[in-house]
Amino acid sequence: MPQMTMVQAITDALRVSLREDPRVVVLGEDVGKNGGVFRVTEGLQAEFGADRVADTPLAENGIIGGAIGMAMYGMRPVAEIQFVDFIYPAFDQIVSELAKLRWRSANQYSCPVVVRAPYGGGIRGGLYHSQSPEAYFCHTPGLQVVIPSTPADAKGLLLSAMTGEDPVIFLEPKRLYRSIKEDVPEGRYTTPIGKARTARAGEQLTVLAYGAMVPVSVEAADMAAERGWSVEVLDLRTLLPLDTEAVLESVRRTGRAVIVHEAPRTCGYGAELSATIAEHALTALQAPVLRVTGWDTPFPYTLEHTYLPDAKRVFAAIEHVMNF
């Protein structure tokens, strides 16, 4: 089995789809000859031509709106937004159009578009190349929001997204693009949307994390193990729809929960997780649910490392909960 980085695994998923399905088209800024600024689409235009791997003018609303029209007409577009920080000009197209077309047309039309975008910090990208806006999209019925944390999941989840019937916001933790290499199966396989994954098994506390915060949480769990605490890390993989069953099963079993995300705290995804646990598993809890998150500030450049949750901060929360 070949070893791949997340970038290579995503490229592979796109290549498999472009080969198998003539309806698949990849579009975005610089995705053609240049292969994307992160090289995710490298070599694809040479193999599949400029019609199917298409550079677009620089307008995110044009990219997403165009992809919606293509999907309505029967194609399977995968739109790349160069950095998710640039997605806001297309926010209306995503929230008002992409998410609502099936419902507002009473199922006469649908637009199964996959919107791929690198998200998150850790690459010294500053305010506009580091954000984590997943909560905005999770507040929008009609969308699915998927965030992988490993190369194999990235490929399997993307292939699921590209064969599904509804739009997917597919956020790629750019910090993990090349930092992990692992075995990735060749050819087509799918990882189901809506199913969480146990990244590390444990018995006394559940850390709920996704994307780049998964390895950080696993590191913190390892630190906890040295203190004799058995910590489970649940990689959510899909935020919308949430695998509520997996979250509740784990938290009911461990009786403790810590939630980790790099997005700001207030109304972040952690609030939804915390509320879900409070509604359904209150009596199982032995301690308050804590959130380890980015601060409620814009994303800093020089002091990025103080903004992003790291293993130490996650461990501090674990310690607090265990000692409660």
């Binding site: 044009g62 709106g65 029209g69 159009e97």
Partner: peptide, 20 residues
């Protein structure tokens, strides 16, 4: 095609479908 009340949005869809 089903349209929303947000003005102008449908033009991009027409373009995308035509491109397809």
């Amino acid at each position: 095609v089903a349209w929303s009340s947000v003005i102008g949005t449908q033009l991009v869809h027409a373009m995308g479908a035509a491109w397809a």
